[in-house]
């Protein structure tokens, strides 16, 4: 169902991990890195620019590493990854209130239920 949501309402986000902290970052509209998925730049899923950014980041790993594309869809205006692995990356572990979910500003997608 979420995959279907992506197909009809899908965007791409460029993600990576910070070289020093190792935590997940997303490329923002101003070409700065943000730690929060809601602040990420949304690329149309057919926009070649998203993949071009990942290619560029594979060559320049001076600030971030492990760049990849994340498929998201909008849920009440907030981007939500369709794949649960990306929900974990955007939120933190489900067994401890650590990682992004523990940051002050709470806009992260809801966690995956068991």
């Amino acid at each position: 169902m979420t995959k279907a949501a992506f197909a009809s309402n899908g965007f791409l986000v460029v993600s990576a991990q910070d070289l020093i902290r190792g935590d997940v970052v997303y490329l923002g509209p101003d070409r700065h890195w943000t730690r929060h998925l809601p602040d990420a730049q949304l690329f149309d899923r057919n926009d070649p620019e998203a993949a071009a950014q990942v290619e560029r980041l594979a060559l320049d790993q001076s600030a971030v590493i492990a760049a990849s594309l994340v498929e998201v869809f909008l849920s009440q205006g907030i981007p939500r990854p369709w794949h649960f692995r990306e929900v974990f990356r955007a939120t933190g572990p489900s067994n401890r209130f650590l990682g992004k979910q523990a940051d002050q500003r709470q806009q992260e997608p809801e966690h995956v239920p068991l």
Binding site: R21, V24, Q61, I65, A66, R85, F88, G92, P93
Partner: peptide, 24 residues
């Protein structure tokens, strides 16, 4: 910048450092 990530990765692994989902 004198070591690339590809050069560095095996060195960090030799010291027990992996990159996982939320960080190192």
């Amino acid at each position: 910048g004198s070591l690339s990530e590809d050069e560095f990765r095996p060195l960090r692994l030799m010291n027990g450092v992996y990159l996982l989902l939320h960080g190192y």
